[in-house]
């Protein structure tokens, strides 16, 4: 009984110290922002590995998600003779929910895990301590550029995902199933608002990018410097990011669209 309590206490203390370390880590990242902005070459390199390399995954996924939405939406809406509203359905679900959430999940799997593994390995091979020996701050040199690159990339990738998804819905709904093209676009334009829908979706993706990058970089930086430790940290990045994205999505949706 006492043992159980001791374990519980230990777990609690562990999670609190981890939270403390990660918050401190986040502040260190933020403190390095100005130094990175003075050296945009570092940022550009990370934008390549975080953003450009996720480009194809996101575009192809967006296309297929949009096409499936077009197909399923058409089957259901045509039951009610409302297949003109297909554009509204596809665009609303993509812009409000699927774009930010699925985009962020894919991004966590594609870029987040890679970042954790990269930084974990840097730590395991003592590259980070090597930098410190040379009086180079590894957080400013390694971590902050990746953090900023991720925060810039994810909203852009989300916008791409949603846009390609709408075009995919158009491809299936209008070109293949014969929904009227004019009503596809005009009903969509009438129903969606720049601030209420699109800006909120982009804000969501900013928040998700922030959280994914924070988790991924911290797990890598905090990993036990062995091959097993790095593999566990990579798994934790994907699992924790997924939880964080889905949980935050509910909270953000309730704040933005609902009257809870």
């Amino acid at each position: 009984m006492i043992e159980l309590l001791t374990q519980l206490g230990e777990k609690t203390r562990d999670s609190f110290t981890k939270l403390g370390r990660s918050s401190f880590f986040l502040m260190q990242i933020m403190a390095g922002t100005m130094d990175v902005l003075r050296r945009p070459a570092l940022l550009s390199k990370q934008l390549y590995s975080v953003g450009v390399l996720s480009f194809f995954l996101i575009s192809i996924s967006g296309l297929f998600v949009g096409m499936v939405l077009g197909l399923q939406g058409y089957y259901i809406l045509s039951n009610f003779g409302a297949d003109e509203a297909l554009g509204v359905m596809v665009a609303t679900s993509l812009v409000r929910e699927l774009g930010p959430v699925v985009g962020a999940l894919l991004f966590a799997g594609r870029a987040g895990s890679a970042l954790t593994a990269e930084i974990g390995l840097m730590k395991a091979t003592e590259q980070l301590s090597g930098m410190e020996m040379m009086a180079i701050d590894p957080i400013k040199r390694i971590i902050t550029p990746r953090f900023l690159a991720g925060i810039i990339s994810l909203p852009l990738l989300t916008a791409l995902f949603s846009s390609i998804g709408v075009l995919g819905g158009h491809l299936v709904g209008v070109e293949m199933l014969g929904v009227d093209e004019g009503s596809y676009w005009s009903q969509m334009q009438a129903a969606l608002d720049v601030y209420d829908d699109i800006l909120n979706g982009i804000i969501k993706s900013f928040v998700f990018g922030f959280v994914i990058l924070w988790i991924a970089l911290f797990e890598g930086y905090d990993a036990i410097p062995t091959s097993e430790g790095v593999s566990r940290a990579t798994t934790r990045t994907v699992v924790n990011s997924a939880f964080a994205i889905l949980g935050l999505d509910f909270i953000l949706t309730a704040l933005m669209f609902g009257d809870i």
Binding site: F55, V95, S153, L156, L157, L160, S162, L192, V194, I202
Partner: peptide, 14 residues
Amino acid sequence: IGIGALFFMAMKIS
């Protein structure tokens, strides 16, 4: 392309 997609969303979708 990312900024283009943002514009596309603002102009064509909404």
